[in-house]
Write a protein that binds this DNA or RNA. Structure first.
Lengths: 153, 153
DNA sequence: TTGATATCATTTGCGTACGAATGAATTTTG
DNA sequence: CAAAATTCATTCGTACGCAAATGATATCAA
């Protein structure tokens, strides 16, 4: 390397103690990559549904009919995002929407028989997805990681 | 609860051993929420730049001029995503683009003086963001978590 | 009861994120 | 060398994710 290149490299990043920030070591960056990896594993097992769509179906299976808003809180999605997800599930015939009789603001969401059949069928695959996502960790590490991750979320 | 409601609840989710899948306990779901929380903390500290945009600037500071493609690999973004991010940084005057002299397919990205100034100024805030994101964990838990998260990503 | 507030849903706009298709330029290989 | 394969960048289409604005309905309070 020439002296000039050396100078350039110094100017690049090593100015006055700035070199102690490494992007690859920041939680946010790694969290984003871990999430990307999970989504990719998910898609490999369940091609015709996204993780948020599956989350909506799985939660509806747990709680039964709820308002769109309420469902959003249960699966950590804001109102605008939930609407899109539910619209697409409705278009596929997995959920149906009805107005709340008393409170006419509320839009009730519930599983159709097809929707219920789909979740039940997909749950075993979802378990595989969880397993594969955690597979870089040993059996002992998994509960430790899950506990700390839950604290963070 | 009436007997009828009881029956409905059974039909809802507890049919034939299906009750052992809890969405809120799945890595993917918690990973998504942890990521959401981080993005929100980021936005509270750095309002005028997104995490991906900052990642691009921080990486350019590390490696100097690179091709758009190469940069994408370094910050874990596919070509289509990187293009959008770089376009917006260019519109803000933080990066500039030039064609590679020899290999005319490549588009070289580099920081402008304004871009460099911005990263240097933001790095201390980024460190605060990392700190705040990890704040639910104790000092002892942090390295454990980071090690396991890195294995997962 | 009515006027202020709050809640539910929708819409718009912006920014990731990625698969798939396309075209230009380069490299490989027969 | 020339054809085939690869690489880089761009574009299109779809799907989150969220802030902000809007409208309808419901609740609260004076």
């Amino acid at each position: 390397m020439s002296a000039d290149e050396n100078i350039l490299k110094l100017v690049d990043a090593d100015e006055a103690g700035g070199e102690d920030y490494r992007l690859q070591d920041q939680v946010g960056f790694i969290l984003r990559r871990a999430h990307q990896r999970h989504v990719s594993i998910f898609a490999a097992h369940i091609a015709d549904l996204t993780p948020p769509q599956f989350a909506a179906l799985a939660k509806l299976r747990d709680v039964g009919e709820t308002s769109q808003n309420q469902l959003g809180q249960l699966i950590a999605m804001d109102a605008a995002t939930v609407k899109g997800v539910i619209d697409r599930l409705k278009a596929r015939g997995f959920v149906e929407l009805t107005r709340h009789e008393v409170d006419k603001r509320r839009l009730l969401v519930s599983l159709t028989p097809e929707g219920r059949e789909a979740v039940e069928r997909l749950i075993p695959l979802a378990q595989k997805i969880t397993e594969e996502t955690l597979s870089p960790l040993s059996a002992k590490e998994i509960p430790v990681f899950m506990r700390l991750l839950a604290k963070l979320a």
